[in-house]
């Protein structure tokens, strides 16, 4: 594995009574697309801000590109914050030039045009930002974050508010960044996107890291304790059946989680006794399921 681009060791940050990040360790390898999942208020944005040196940890080390000192943001890093913000009166090209020059890119015009074309925004280059739709403004904001050819792009919820077509466009743009050798760290609520796109992902919950690894690896770690079924009578209540710990209903099929050591064969027999079984699969849990197990309302206070 390549030298880590980001290395965090025992990092804590407190705001008043609220411990936003609690003893976080993190290692992001170079050239990877690294997903960052977790519910709202779990410390994702605080972590991103510490990597960007917008705020500073109370305890621990944040090393970016081998450097753990410094106050000002690194020009090799690009940042798309969760809360979008653009100068509304500026023209798109002018705004992107401003952001590129602020990051030290000297002749940004060709790069700006290339990105605008890639994202289908070329004809809007000389329009003011306030004339853009929300989705277009978000793509402009993305360009502002990556136009200076960063080696590390930190994207907070890059897909939120985009339609499926534009989500695809943005996903391709992120792959393009990785193709150029950049490391992409992005946070999302969209587990399917994370599962498809990430080389590696991490889940943070209540300021602590609760998951870290490649998606397949994580699913395996949570074991083959998930049963996916499609039944003749979809309205059947399955929660009382032998060995069943939890039921998730997805309309077309149901996902059951078994207690440790419960026998799937016993469950199958019970189901056949109740209704017709169209589909029965012993599967790895989806990321979504893992996410809900940890962060769902029923999750214990100390999930780890």
């Amino acid at each position: 594995m390549a030298e880590p681009v980001i290395l965090m060791e025992g990092v804590s940050k407190r705001f008043g009574d609220h411990l936003a990040v609690d003893a976080l360790d993190l290692e992001v390898p170079g050239g990877a697309i690294y997903g960052f999942i977790g519910p709202n208020g779990s410390g994702k944005t605080t972590t991103a801000r510490m990597i960007l040196r917008i705020i500073h940890p109370d305890r621990g080390r944040v090393v970016v590109f081998g450097r753990d000192q410094g106050r000002a943001a690194d020009d090799r890093v690009g940042y798309l914050p969760e809360e979008r913000g653009l100068y509304r009166k500026m023209r798109v090209r002018e705004l992107l030039r401003f952001h590129a020059e602020l990051k030290g890119l000297r002749r940004p015009d060709a790069e700006i045009l290339a990105w605008l074309e890639r994202l289908g925004l070329a004809s809007w280059a000389d329009r003011p930002v306030e004339a853009l739709s929300k989705g277009m403004a978000q793509k402009v904001q993305f360009v502002a974050a990556v136009v200076h050819r960063p080696q590390l792009a930190i994207l907070d919820e890059p897909f939120s508010g985009l339609d499926p077509v534009n989500q695809g466009v943005l996903k391709d743009a992120m792959l393009e960044l990785r193709r150029r050798g950049a490391t992409v760290l992005f946070s999302t609520h969209d587990m399917a996107a994370a599962e498809r796109l990430c080389d590696r992902l991490m889940m943070i919950y209540r300021g602590r890291k609760v998951l870290d690894g490649a998606p397949a690896e994580l699913r395996q770690r949570y074991g083959r304790d998930t049963i996916r079924v499609r039944l003749g009578d979809p309205r059947l209540d399955l929660s009382g059946l032998p060995g069943v710990a939890a039921v998730a209903d997805y309309a077309a099929y149901k996902e059951l989680r078994l207690h440790d050591g419960a026998d799937p064969q016993q469950l199958l027999r019970a189901l056949i006794g109740l209704t017709r079984v169209d589909h029965f699969e012993i599967a790895e849990p989806s990321l979504h399921d893992i996410f809900l197990r940890i962060a769902g309302p029923a999750a214990p206070a100390d999930a780890a």
């Binding site: 940042y79 914050p81 979008r84 100068y87 509304r88 602020l102 974050a145």
Partner: peptide, 19 residues
Amino acid sequence: EEKQQRIAEVLLGSVAPFD
């Protein structure tokens, strides 16, 4: 306006607050 429109955070990703 920079604060309300959350422009400030974008800028702080590129430049130190004092600068």
